[in-house]
Write a protein that binds this DNA or RNA. Structure first.
Lengths: 337, 337
DNA sequence: TTGTACGCGTTATCAT
DNA sequence: ATGATAACGCGTACAA
């Protein structure tokens, strides 16, 4: 490939002048400028970004680490779509690294982006603990921001949704509709999100003096299959419920199908609510409701903050985000039709 | 950040020795090796990949360009998921660049990856013509492979699905079920995929001596809204049909909903078939069938080929892939129930 | 087995 | 306004 030196020779100037023409830094006569551009065209010169970035110590890239398990489905698409769009609006490039499915691989992905000298990094952690992340942030000079976790020491470096409060609000809405027997399928309880959504459910019941029935709670692991298994468990226990909250949409969908195949009508006999917003996609049947987490706003906020930090700003901690229950046909009924 | 020089000083050796320890190239005594590792730990040294890649002229990265319009939905997730997995299995990193929504931006994305000195590039073109891509491939020394296009001059550089034949096969399956009045909603006809799926439909009819009715064909633009509008157009024209093929799943879903809201039962009165495989996702109702395009196999093939080229191999052109109609409940019926 | 010195392709700081 | 030249951090012949 043609380098700057060849362009310089062709135009009869020095490397320095070519560089000046390219970057716009420093004065250069109009006539030589023309000659340089012509030489560039002539030999199809393209700048080597590796060399440029090495020299300037900036790469104009933002790194994003997301776990493998999130790659499937609409949530990830939305996240990536907005992240890429916003990054490029700022004249930078987004680089995605796969966090795969273990803490070690998550660390490796982050390390790779750091070694690549990304100007800043956003992580959507799944296996790393808050403490480890907090430490990581302080070890590296590049700003490392965190999505979906409430950090302890670096509050200005995280953007998250109050999952507990969001869950509580959603369940309260069901209670206001008249539901009292509300079943709950948890997410993986090794994830903060899973834990918080469960605790929100409990808080809502407590707030309204509805006794907590352990028999109404079953464990799930985020997948449609576990949602459907959860319904089996509930029905086999012989408990009755007029509403079912699943900790994400995948499980809500699995649950709904299983309810139907066991002869229960959704939403007439059981209202089903999920989280995230697959259930709100245009191609879903309107028999499910879902709690929409504001991904777009969150990714927007985090990138704004990151850019601001890169430009040398200091950020004060911001309040957390809140999800909102989007009711579809499924919530009109109330219990027992 | 600590550089190699600092590590060298700390260990009392030269840069070269540190480099040898790190890369594993060249002999180095066990004792000094230990000292070097210790020094590395001590100052938290991390290699600068920009410098390393500049020196070695290899980046161990593969670039992927995909249009913005594909970012939504399951198809893209699958593509990206497998691409990332396979790339990293080969010890390299996948870098994603947004092709956005114009030819110019698609070019820019490719150019960025080239300037970054990715070892190889995969493009999933949307706006670039086959001729331009063919030219591009020959201009650059990095291998540039192409997904979903049949190139003219560089057949070994493309992996694609025979959309026309795939579409034809699917329609023939409907004909074999007894359907004769089969409506068709096209995709955007500025895209090869859209054109080929339509021509496959026509070919199937011709093959079975079923006269082509222009009134059974309506234009769509890939979105659910255009699928639903297509159904309106068809019904307003007063034509009758027992099956409806939409050129992708999004339109099939829009169409199905519109059929239902205008009082037609799916699939009892009208069988609906889409393309890609959203309709096959676990959360979809089983009232839609879909033609599954083998994305996984295709991305696998293209990455294998790319790696092979990077290792200096020459590839002979391979046959194209074929999609397959996955029948669900919706195909059992045949016309008129 | 280890060190010296040069090259990778830019940018940036000096002079001129 | 332009040209030398020294970084940037690393790999690697070549020499010792």
């Amino acid at each position: 490939m043609a380098t700057m030196l060849e362009v310089a020779k062709l135009a009869g100037v020095s490397k320095a002048t070519v560089s000046r023409v390219l970057t716009g830094n420093g004065y250069v006569g109009q006539e030589t400028k023309d000659r340089v551009w012509q030489a560039i065209e002539e030999c199809g010169y393209r700048p080597n970004l590796l060399a440029r970035n090495l020299a300037t110590k900036r790469t104009q890239t933002l790194g994003l680490v997301v776990t493998n398990t999130l790659y499937h489905g609409v949530y990830f698409s939305e996240l990536l779509f907005h992240a890429a769009r916003m990054t490029e609006n700022q004249g930078r490039q987004l680089i995605l690294a796969d966090g795969k499915h273990s803490a070690e691989e998550e660390r490796a992905a982050i390390q790779y982006l750091l070694d690549m000298r990304c100007d800043g990094i956003i992580i959507y952690p799944r296996f790393l603990s808050v403490d480890e992340i907090d430490e990581l942030i302080q070890q590296h000079e590049q700003p490392v921001l965190v999505l979906n976790r409430r950090l302890r020491r670096n509050l200005s470096h995280c953007v998250y949704c109050d999952q507990a409060r969001t869950s509580q609000n959603a369940v309260e809405k069901l209670i206001q509709q008249g539901h009292r027997d509300i079943a709950f399928i948890t997410g993986s309880l090794d994830s903060p999100t899973g834990i918080e959504r469960l605790s929100g459910y409990k808080a809502a019941l407590a707030e309204h003096n509805i006794p907590l029935q352990d028999a109404l709670i079953v464990d799930g692991k985020w997948t449609p299959a576990t949602g459907s298994a959860g319904v089996d468990t509930l029905l086999d226990r012989g408990v009755s419920f007029s509403a079912l909250v699943a900790s994400n949409d995948d499980m809500a969908i699995g649950a709904m199908k299983q309810l139907q195949s066991r002869g229960l009508r959704v939403p007439e006999q059981v209202s089903v609510v999920g989280f995230d917003d697959i259930a709100l996609a245009p191609y879903m049947m309107p028999s499910l409701s879902s709690v929409k987490i504001p991904v777009t706003e969150m990714i927007q906020e985090i990138i704004h903050r990151l850019i601001f930090m890169l430009d040398g700003g200091e950020f004060k901690p911001q309040p957390s985000f809140l999800g909102e229950l989007i009711a579809r046909d499924s919530l009109g009924a109330g219990p027992q039709g």
